[in-house]
Design a protein around this nucleic acid. Structure first.
Lengths: 266, 266
DNA sequence: CGCGAGCTTGATGCCGATCAATGCATGTGG
DNA sequence: CCACATGCATTGATCGGCATCAAGCTCGCG
């Protein structure tokens, strides 16, 4: 309903071809006109400040004074880097992936505007996964020590932060369910529905989207090979559930997708 | 090395047949002689108080004044229950499992002494999974509101709690890697090594263990069917890696198990 | 225009699921 | 104490979903 991200008809459809140069301050993006501040960020309903009152929110502003731009393909951080800060995605799109000693790797999540990156770093003071920008992106830097300090005399922030961590745990458990017991079609359907739901919350169309990641990255996330992802997309298209043109997806029968998940049917 | 849980030769081998009656206070377990307190709990090196100084630890004692016994098979909490408290396992063994609308369910973890239960409940003020005791167990009740309050003027506790949540996230990402890209043998090997490592940290033998869960529960956790778990156990036994007698496992070739995981070999 | 990254599609094979029967412990009631 | 029921584990036979290998195809870009 009330979208405070500027409501685009679909995701900014040309952002891949015509990527804007992104050195800080070079390009007069509208956001630059404001002070760097949560209190006037159009993501405040989705990000760390959720539920904070106006005056409370201004106390956050001191915290997130810094931004950082990450061009497509670059890492915001890598596994092993010292952990200093959390990051809130302002614009753009990220993937996080862990890898085992023997070189296998697994995409553990895709993050879009308003979502937090780096929570896994708290445990051992080192980041535990790579965070890579899938398009030119910008993040707010949240020094973790300061976040802890501020949340010490700031109950609402403290609680909100705990909720965010807990929500990540719940999400991960959902992924374990998906990876442990769903079949390829169910996985892909769940993935698409989750993606569109999150895009919708950000003011984008719920039926039309552009995938920012490759089939291989989707496959890694869902525990499938890229060929299986591709075939499943084609199958969904044949069945009239989707229209698939490379990375452009239009969802034709959302209810049909939903049934796929809830209906064990087998 | 210095084990502060009483170091048993292996896990209390008769605890399943001769389960002690477990109504609170009925049985004079040694712990009952002390006050209920973190500061003299033999799990303090593994549980929430890790890293706290002696005087700091005593401040925790006010928090965890209550215990609760959970007989084998009973739920400590169920998905949908109102979230009030976290729980620290004092004795016994738990599984947590989530289930989807269509009845599928997935074991998301096994918890032993010193580990925390209920972190997923913070996000929506309701528990999001079931926690079921796999043997007669006892937990410390940690009212979450009080934990937040105490951690507000108690930096070390605050930080420790954040680390615990983060560690859970890291663990979950590891499970996603396992579920997304490992084969049955690798999964079971990783599971056994993880289990023995945690048991060893608690003063138990690192080569001999008793599984507290069924083959089906292991399978659910690892994204396999119980027959596959059973077959893989047999295979490991044939290869001289393990000795398997029902739920009694003896690890003969730990290095061999380790190789299985790190060596993609295929 | 032609190269290359990423996507699609087909043919084949294998790992683990499924179905089914048997074995093995524990517990119960006659 | 034995007979039987019950829950869990093992093992075999078969099947199917997804991985793997291998071409082509599409599209954006130098």
């Amino acid at each position: 309903m009330n979208t405070n991200t500027q409501p685009l008809p679909a995701q900014d459809p040309d952002s891949r071809s015509a990527m804007r140069p992104c050195a800080d301050g070079v390009v007069p993006i509208r956001a630059e006109a404001f002070k760097v501040a949560c209190s006037n960020c159009n993501l405040r309903e989705l990000c760390l400040p959720v539920g904070l009152s106006e005056p409370d929110m201004e106390r956050l502003d001191a915290l997130v004074a810094k931004r950082r731009s990450v061009p497509r393909g670059d890492a915001l951080f890598r596994a092993g880097d010292a952990f200093q800060s959390l990051y809130a995605v302002r614009t753009g799109f990220f993937k996080t992936c862990v890898s085992s000693e023997d070189g296998r790797d697994q995409v553990t999540g895709f993050q879009m505007a308003g979502e937090l990156l780096g929570l896994d770093g708290i445990s051992h003071d080192r980041h535990n996964c790579d965070a890579v920008a899938l398009e030119d992106s910008q993040v707010c830097v949240i020094p973790f020590g300061q976040l802890e300090a501020l949340s010490r005399d700031f109950t609402a922030l403290q609680h909100q932060f705990h909720k965010i961590m807990s929500r990540e745990i719940v999400r991960d458990h959902g992924m374990m369910l998906l990876l442990g017991s769903m079949r390829a079609e169910e996985r892909l359907a769940a993935f698409l529905l989750n993606l569109t739901q999150r895009l919708q919350a950000r003011g984008f169309s719920s039926s039309s989207l552009i995938l920012r990641m490759t089939r291989e990255e989707i496959g890694s996330y869902l525990g499938l090979k890229l060929e299986t992802v591709s075939r499943t997309f084609s199958k969904f298209q044949d069945e009239g559930l989707l229209e698939v043109k490379q990375r452009h997806i239009r969802i034709i029968d959302q209810a049909g997708l939903r049934q796929l998940i809830n209906h064990t049917a087998c």
